[in-house]
Nucleic acid binder design. Structure first.
Lengths: 213, 213
DNA sequence: ACCTGAACACCGTTCAAGT
DNA sequence: ACCTGAACACCGTTCAAGT
């Protein structure tokens, strides 16, 4: 399959993004890299934001493809493997990570589809781990949110240099992910030896999410 | 104390940031808001990035002041209160949050000082919670990193709309913080009824943080 | 020491015109 | 349908000049 002009524009934008961050992605340089004029992109994308959204979409697609390939293997990837892979990807392609999960408030239907597929893969991995006693019981959606939030935050803080600034422990994001899974396994064991009260279920909401005064 | 011109420029930049994001912070508009010409800021800041770093510094200072005031109260703020406050601040001032923790690779000595003060406050709160059995034992620095990473990631995902997209649970970032503290309390209880092997200490490193192949 | 107005290079976007 | 070159408005930054 030959690369369409649209694809080559996206590839050029992604390369510039990796190289110099979002500031380096100018339509003029994108056009120059792809061998067209500086406003040829306007025939394929509404504006610069749409081009960046397409870059994020391509990245999400590639991530989903890799994940699907792993899901075909036996055994299926564990929740821990998924989160560790997420962190490794973020560290390896910081700019794509920031772009993809930074903001694509735009609707981009295909983008939402692949995101939903990735989410459901994580959900089933969480459910499997719960059944094996590696993760505590409760709403899998909420537990998946916890895992994703930690992996995302650890990667983001590490990329900004806000992690273990003075720590002699030198804990990286992957270490924090591992720690969380260790603690959750301990919590699951503790719950197994207790009365079955669920955490994170609808009945035990802790805090309102409303705006503080 | 009257507001110096430098302060009024920082205030103008912060107001523009809150209103329209980083793109709305132009030196021309900053000057107009502060009542000076569009390049007067260059007499107070090296360039636009330095002005934004000063905005981040002012924000960090105000956060530290609020935290110190709370620390004077009895009892001292718990680790959970600190993290909940962090999340609430991020949701209330999204642009300042993204700027302050996004990137200030710049050295800015005073910035590092207030950041270190805030970090040590969290560390002591973690140690207190550990002594009370609310948090599991282990390196407090590493545990603090876990808490901060989760709060940061939950806030960031919520702001980008990547949290509980289809969840009927509607778990917000504050809920995830509460969940984590619940799980950690359970893990602490489980560890108390086990042989004292520490998690997250130097001897039990889980994963190398090196780059994946 | 601080400020101004003019000027330069760059960028996103639009438009008339070509094939 | 896709592309080009010129043009416009805007922005960061620099510079000569003022007080």
């Amino acid at each position: 399959m030959v690369e369409s002009r649209r694809d080559s524009l996206i590839a050029a934008a992604a390369a510039l993004l990796d190289q110099g961050g979002p500031a380096a992605v100018t339509l003029r340089e994108v056009g120059r890299t792809a061998g067209v004029s500086h406003n040829a992109p306007y025939k394929h994308f509404a504006d610069k934001d749409a081009l960046l959204a397409a870059v994020a979409g391509r990245e999400l697609d590639q991530l989903a493809r890799v994940a699907r390939a792993r899901a075909g293997a036996t055994p299926q990837p564990s929740a821990k493997a998924l989160m560790t892979g997420y962190v490794a990807w973020a560290l390896r392609y910081p700019e794509r990570f920031k772009l993809t999960f930074g903001r694509w408030t735009r609707e981009e239907p295909e983008l939402a589809a692949t995101a939903a597929a990735a989410h459901s893969m994580l959900l089933s991995a969480v459910a499997t781990a719960q059944a094996q006693g590696d993760l505590p019981p409760g709403d899998p959606e909420r537990l998946a949110g916890l895992l994703q939030a930690l992996a995302h935050g650890a990667a983001d803080l590490a990329l900004s240099g806000h992690l273990s600034e003075s720590g002699k422990g030198r804990a990286g994001p992957a270490d924090l992910v591992a720690d969380l899974f260790d603690y959750l396994r301990l919590a699951a064991a503790e719950k197994a030896s207790q009365a079955p009260v669920s955490i994170g279920a609808a009945g035990s909401r802790h805090h309102s999410d409303s705006e503080p005064s």
